[in-house]
């Protein structure tokens, strides 16, 4: 693939070139500034934060604050919340991918009665946000006794109309001859799925994994509803739980350290899968 800097666009040098970069740098600084502030706040002491003006350069409490956050936290150690979030996000992302792959496979390659009907039923649920069905969902989960459990966190969010739709669209671009060639080669439907369709979809899977992992990681309302036990708190809602009610003083450095820690896993996922992610979005590799 030709890189952008070899072909047009950024190639020309001169005032325009530097102005473009200046603009980009300002934009990046603008976006990065709040994160920087959060980082700074997580490395100073409580007194320094509450005393105006706010510090703009990191202090010397880095190790203390992060140790405090990770291993004791406010209600529950952040390490525990990170683990909870990780299990939930992985469960949601992998579960969604497995289920969508299988349902898209069924919808595209099998001619069963009501195929279109089922597809449109799945597609319709796209239009229902979680919030709309949250009360009945809560009822169901509560009846199953899944409150305060990983399964309760994961299962209600595990089906994905979006991912099913995306995989369906992708499968429909795979030439029919490929399925026929596999059939002539003697592959059973599931062998075709495992040996051919799945490896061909790997870039799409990676792209979807990134998106869904972040989706799962950022879940707020649902964990807030069904986890009452601090041991089951996820990190995104856990941050909220750290704010004291009433007149207690918020432990800002620890909260900020928690926020920074909460950002790290999604960043790792994005960066480590960036190559596959972009390929998944850009080319279909036929």
């Amino acid at each position: 693939m030709p890189r952008a800097n070899e072909s047009g666009m950024v190639r020309k040098r001169g005032v325009g070139y530097w102005l473009t970069h200046l603009g980009l740098i300002i934009g990046v600084l603008f976006i990065f500034f709040p994160i920087w502030l959060a980082f700074v706040a997580s490395t100073v002491s409580q007194q320094e934060i509450v005393r105006p003006p706010m510090p703009l350069w990191p202090g010397d409490q880095f190790i203390e604050n992060y140790t405090a956050a990770l291993f004791s936290g406010v209600n529950v150690p952040v390490a525990k919340m990170l683990l909870n979030s990780l299990i939930m996000a992985l469960g949601i992302a992998l579960g969604k991918i497995v289920i969508s792959l299988l349902s898209a496979f069924a919808i595209v390659y099998f001619n069963f009665p009501g195929r279109r009907f089922f597809f449109w039923m799945i597609f319709l649920t796209l239009m229902l946000p979680v919030e709309v069905r949250i009360v009945p969902t809560f009822q169901v989960i509560a009846n199953f006794g899944m409150l305060n459990s990983y399964s309760g966190l994961i299962f209600p969010l595990i089906a994905s109309a979006t991912a099913t739709f995306l995989f369906r669209q992708y499968f429909m671009t795979v030439p029919d001859e490929l399925a026929e060639a596999a059939r002539v080669d003697g592959a059973r439907p599931m062998q075709f799925f495992w040996h051919i369709l799945l490896p061909m979809s790997r870039t799409n899977i990676a792209a979807l994994f990134v998106i869904l992992f972040i989706y799962g990681w950022n879940q707020y309302l649902w964990p807030l509803l069904i986890t009452t036990d601090p041991e089951m708190n996820t990190i995104v809602m856990g941050i909220r739980q750290m704010f004291p009610s009433g007149d207690d003083v918020a432990d800002w450095p620890v909260i900020m350290a928690t926020s920074i820690l909460a950002m790290i896993p999604p960043i790792i996922v994005v960066i480590s899968m960036q190559k596959l992610f972009i390929r998944g979005l850009v080319d279909s590799e036929k």
Binding site: P175, E177, A181, R183, V184
Partner: peptide, 19 residues
């Protein structure tokens, strides 16, 4: 089934497994 017919087919667009 095709595989039990003892035939082999060459397709117009080759239908090679790309991966």
């Amino acid at each position: 089934e095709p595989m039990d017919r003892n035939i082999a087919m060459v397709f117009q667009n080759y239908a090679l497994y790309p991966h």
